[in-house]
Design a protein around this nucleic acid. Sequence first.
DNA 1: GAAGTTATTATACACTTGAATAATAGCGGC
DNA 2: GCCGCTATTATTCAAGTGTATAATAACTTC
Lengths: 204, 204
Amino acid sequence: MSRRSFHRAPEGERRQELIEATLDCISEFGLKGATVRQIAVRAGVTAGLVRHYFESKDQMVAEAYRAVIASLTEKAKNVAGDPTTRLKDFIAINLTEPVADSRSVSLWAAFISQVRVDPVLAEIHREGYLAFRNALQDLLSDFLAAKGRAASPEECRRYAIAINGLVDGLWVEGCLAGDLFRDGELVSIAMASVEALLGLQIEE
Amino acid sequence: MSRRSFHRAPEGERRQELIEATLDCISEFGLKGATVRQIAVRAGVTAGLVRHYFESKDQMVAEAYRAVIASLTEKAKNVAGDPTTRLKDFIAINLTEPVADSRSVSLWAAFISQVRVDPVLAEIHREGYLAFRNALQDLLSDFLAAKGRAASPEECRRYAIAINGLVDGLWVEGCLAGDLFRDGELVSIAMASVEALLGLQIEE
DNA sequence: GAAGTTATTATACACTTGAATAATAGCGGC
DNA sequence: GCCGCTATTATTCAAGTGTATAATAACTTC
């Protein structure tokens, strides 16, 4: 009986593959379907390898969550250009693929549902949420200033909470039932809504 | 060795208890922590009984999801009074306890994360979502008419999507990190936002 | 090309899972 | 008070779980 042949993955690469495989499994089979064995199959390795890279399955899952948060916030934080463009892009990016797709929301929900159970995930979540909202708050602050309507931090905070809620809510709706909306409809609704909320035009 | 004593529950009651126990377990331990045995302990019965009331654990979980959706939409749909009061209450109810609490959002997220996996849950979700949004759309339609600003169904639809997103998003934020907000802050932000979105006053 | 290192596989283990089965305790009708 | 029905318990089962351990194949270094 001969062993399976294999190749040694370059530094750090296998770790990344395992995390990616974990996310694939969670989104396809749910948290409880993401077993060590299933994840290993997806990553093209055997189950034992997981424990060579991670102290436990739980730790691997926690790192996978970090990766999700990072991918959700990264694109949104990397907007560039003048304040108006940045705000516009922020909204559009969050409501179109690849940020807005059913895989993302499945992952997000799977982890959210564990926030109450697992303090480690709760901490990761909290950090991610605040980072996201603060990024939005800065964006709004710049935008309002550029439009000549300087707003107090308190005002910006309230706007950020509202717009964050709006964008998150539409994101979930779109991800879960994209077929209920026409192409670009969510973005268009979001733009119009933000304009109404701020009382300022975003699009010219 | 003697058997445990027990009492036969009245018609239908045990079923309800099992569903409630299922939800308790899901919110406390997550979907994968909600095992048949754990649920039975919570309900104060033995594990075997589950299969006497439900064809499978999956079926029980699906019925539990129906119960969640029902409890989330029921309160929101039962608003009464003039259109303005109803809209105001709809917003307030969804952003204060008992609708807005961490247990609710944990349950919601646990099921949402399975929507992609389980077609049965997907169908239940879709029905619930549409019912909720349609209720809101009717509310808005009445409200706009009462304010003398009759709107086309298309307009109402866009408003309903936006406000539904806003309320859902704030609901999630509030449930997950209620301590980040002052008392009543979310409701106040939501009211102000809806007023801005519609360009009409809700509160006098 | 031989030796040493370690990433990877293979196998085993103790435990949990959902489900099936058989025994029995509570309860209504007579 | 006994009988029959069935809700409930107790026990068992096969499959699946995360983890531990030992063997080994691939790569590095010299």
